[in-house]
Amino acid sequence: MPNMREIRERISSIQQILKITNAMYLMSSSKLKKARKSLEATEPYFYKLQSTIESVLEHTPHTRQLFFDRRTDIPEEKRKKGYIVITADKGLCGSYNHNIMKYTEQELAKAPSPENCYLFVMGQVGRMHFQNSIRKGNAAALDAEFLYTTQNPTLYRAMEIAELVLKKFSEHKLDEVYLIYTNMINSNVQENKTVQLLPFSRRHFGKAADGTMKKLPKASFVPSPEKVMEYLIPQYAKGIIYGAMVEAFCCEQQSRMTAMDAATNSAKDMIKDLSLLYNRARQAAITQEITEVCGGAASLQE
């Protein structure tokens, strides 16, 4: 029979943890509400942007635009691939971080030459993870100066990131850029997703979720297709990155909420089991004492 004091200490420590997880649950649920709201506000833009760009591109005359350049002269194993990975800033959110990092590693494994992969990791947890894996000899390079948080996504942050990758692309420091983030299908199902950001190709525009695809007869571009594209592509990159950031942040809060809810529940279960054990131990102790007293009294009488 375990010691009563031990059990009591254990129960009180679990209660402390329960308080923490419960507080985190409440916090993440209020944050989730906010994130959901901003996700709902951004979604129309995000989808419209994709469908509009798609229909615009269908009518774009073939331009020798920098961001369309597929650089087919560079062989597959020498292509420099950049990956923007969106992870969380903090742990304790179930398998959210684990999933996205594992997925990223799988993506990296697909690349023919890991030394030409460059990681741009948003969020503290992902950055720490990849720093460690580089130290262990994983060959992908991590951009150490790419320090962005994933908390409360802003358009400004998305713009900075978009500018950075577009600049690297135009300087030939990167030949392909991918964006890896967690997509929210519904509140229980999340999915990791890769989007090719650069070079811009016509085929990677999947159908937008709302399915609005309006056929545009031949459109004119004012002042010129090149000028419009020069302006449109950074705009598009910014929009996509922002949308992904909002989506990922919402997923993070969702998984944290679920994880904390589960933790609170199992803490409650543990307390229940332990208090049963405690009561039993106490009862046993009392019974034993009574037996002892009775035994003592009986021996005195004799």
């Binding site: 615009v56 009518h59 545009l216 459109a219 004119s220 571009f221 004012v222 002042p223 302006y231």
Partner: peptide, 12 residues
């Protein structure tokens, strides 16, 4: 200026 029936156009 854009009125109904404007020719297809894309601009920034």
């Amino acid at each position: 200026g854009i009125l109904a029936g404007h020719e297809p156009l894309v601009t920034c």
